[in-house]
Design a protein around this nucleic acid. Structure first.
Length: 554
RNA sequence: GCCCCCGUAGCUCAGUUGGAUAGAGCGACCGCCUCCUAAGCGGUAGGUCACAGGUUCAAUUCCUGUCGGGGGCACCA
């Protein structure tokens, strides 16, 4: 009995009541009924407030409505009891056998347990990180690497066809600054006022000069071009490698420069022109973004004839749509939130639906703390904490988990001392430890010759509270995955795993799964082993959605 | 001035179609290993859910305002 099945039973009961004429529902019977797991054990295995919600429309007292529903439900399969409580809640207890059967279903489903087809047939473009190739990925971008990649896995789990994409800003003045910074370093000069500094600059210079020993004797413009082209390539290779080591690989690395060189920018502008969205003023070309909620119109082509930054985004968005993506999700830091309204306006100007075809997600920033004091980063001074620094300090699993377990609406403080301490304070160990314990039980079961399959599994033997709680936690997994996907909130998966790991640890503490000593295996041992197998499957599936390893031993 | 996010236990944070007695980890205190991994479990202590109104049978949740913290408001990218 899963929450979905219970929901269906309640809908069935409502339908019966309506058909019998016992109740009148002007708006019809709802397609599904939300059931929740009560916080208090006395409130049963599941509870629903559907009687409270429908009573007014039915013109009935909520408790009377609930009573009718309870009587109807009492005869339904797998339901042990349904009681009315408070103003009209319905507290439901599930028959032991009906609940335990889920364990075998999970084991049979394996890696597919929790997946669905909610987004099947949808092509989703997920753009994240997209850090400029003027330096290593710093801590701000790492949050998006962890959250974005996890969101990609979660959307895939609900059936979407996901393309992970990295927009590579290799066009514009920041690249010129980068090239000038490299040249200055090669000449032994200080970094330019608006340039970049740090050890990584010197490292790149050394590589470029090794490949082009004569670069400093080239004319200025030529030397600058050599440093630009080589430097960007080296930087980009380094970024890709860091992300790969972090478990994040993109399907497409899109170069902004290509949009300008291929004429895609001009085509996008022409399209908007045809749609009547462009106008000329003060020698510049403007897009009517204020018609679609932006504060003001935006310059697309500057008065000097150069395309403004937004022109690349116009072309890039159009390009994504032409590649067949129904949904283009872009993950941006809070320092870019001011850009959201014009992106949405741009989407609308193309005649698309903002929030559907284009969906910018804003996440708050990550602060670094050391010795209780905030750490100031400066790109110019080179005091940047990079993705690799973070991984060196706390490892990939802890880093990914730590960054993915918080709502992206919250600014997070990352205490370097705490995370570097590798202490067991980190919740990722709690979940991983549960998985390792489960794996250990399964290994021992094999050694003891205890085997379980559907034919020898008696779900009605899983009767104690901790088994029921664990089973209900496992039953909730598909819904958590669906909610995490629809709300774009991977942290829900992490929190769910912590709850489920806790339910398992509590079960482990009170019930011994395997025979002790020379005890003969019983049906109860086998039933619990099935529950253990199902739990390991769910924790493993969930950790995979976060890109965190599920260790067999710790 | 305008826009976005946040304000819940000492700390870090969960809590969505609005529900019952407010949740977890860490920290503090007291317990539990002759038995499958003690990186675990049980218990105690700790709260005006920032504040004030409003909607509702019901508000931490929705609306308005105030205060506090953070981040933004270019013919820069």
């Amino acid at each position: 009995m899963t929450p979905e099945q219970l929901s269906a039973s309640i809908v069935g009961a409502l339908t019966s009541l309506v058909e019998a004429g016992s109740v009148v529902l002007p708006d019809g019977v709802p397609a599904e009924v939300v059931v929740e797991r009560p916080k208090v054990k006395e409130h049963g295995d599941y509870a629903t407030n559907i009687a409270l919600r429908l009573a007014k429309a039915a013109g009935m007292n909520p408790r009377d409505f609930a009573q009718l529903l309870a009587d109807q439900l009492a005869s339904a399969d797998g339901i042990a009891s349904a009681e009315i409580a408070g103003p009209g809640f319905l507290n439901i207890r599930v028959a032991a056998g009906a609940q335990g059967a889920l364990a075998a279903q999970i084991v049979a489903a394996g890696e597919t347990y929790g997946t669905s087809d909610l987004y099947s047939g949808q092509k989703v473009n997920l753009e994240f990180v997209s850090a400029n190739p003027t330096g290593p990925i710093h801590i701000g971008g790492v949050r998006w690497a962890a959250v974005g990649d996890s969101l990609g896995r979660i959307l895939t789990a609900i059936g979407a066809e996901v393309t992970r994409e990295y927009y590579f800003n290799d066009h514009g003045v920041q690249i010129d600054r980068f090239a000038r910074s490299l040249l200055a370093d090669a000449r032994g000069e200080d970094a330019p006022e608006d340039g970049y500094g740090g050890q990584y600059i010197s490292d790149i210079v050394a590589k470029v000069m090794a490949a082009h020993p004569d670069v400093l004797s080239q004319p200025e413009a030529e030397a600058l071009e050599t440093f630009r082209a080589e430097g960007v390539d080296l930087m980009f290779a380094e970024i890709k490698a860091s992300l790969h080591d972090f478990g994040v690989d993109f399907d497409v690395y899109f170069h902004e420069n290509d949009l300008h060189e291929s004429g895609a920018v001009q085509r996008a502008i022409n399209r908007l022109d045809e749609l009547g969205m462009m106008y000329d003023k003060d020698d510049a070309r403007w897009l009517r973004t204020s018609d679609f909620g932006d504060d003001k119109d935006r310059v697309v082509v500057k008065s000097d004839g150069e395309p403004a930054y937004i022109s690349g985004d116009l072309a890039y968005y159009l390009n994504k749509r032409e590649r067949g993506f129904d949904r283009c999700i872009i993950m941006l830091g809070a320092d870019h939130h001011g850009y959201v309204s014009r992106l949405l306006a741009m989407c609308a100007a193309f005649g698309d639906t903002p929030g559907v075809n284009l969906e910018p997600l804003i996440g708050q920033l990550v602060n670094l703390v050391r010795d209780g004091k905030p750490l100031r980063m400066s790109k110019r001074a080179g005091t940047v904490l990079t993705l690799e620094d973070l991984v060196d300090a706390i490892g990939v699993d802890a880093a990914r988990y730590a960054l993915a377990r918080y709502s992206t609406d919250s600014t997070i403080d990352l205490d370097l001392d705490l995370w570097a301490s590798q202490s067991s304070d980190n919740p990722v160990y709690y979940v991983q430890y549960a998985h390792a314990r489960l794996s250990s039980i399964i290994r021992n079961a094999v050694d003891l010759g205890v085997v379980i399959d559907e034919s020898t599994f008696d779900p009605s033997l899983l009767t104690i509270d901790q088994e029921g709680t664990l089973l209900r936690a496992l039953a909730g997994y598909p819904r958590v995955v669906a909610r995490a996907a629809e709300l774009r909130e991977p942290h829900r998966v992490a929190r769910y795993l912590e709850d489920t790991a806790a339910a398992f640890h509590k079960f482990y503490d009170v019930s011994h799964v395997l025979p002790k000593g020379d005890e003969e295996p019983t049906d109860l041992h086998r039933a619990r082993l099935m529950l253990v197998s199902a739990t390991r499957q769910v924790l493993g599936n969930g950790l995979a959605l976060l890109g965190v390893s599920a260790p067999e031993r710790m």
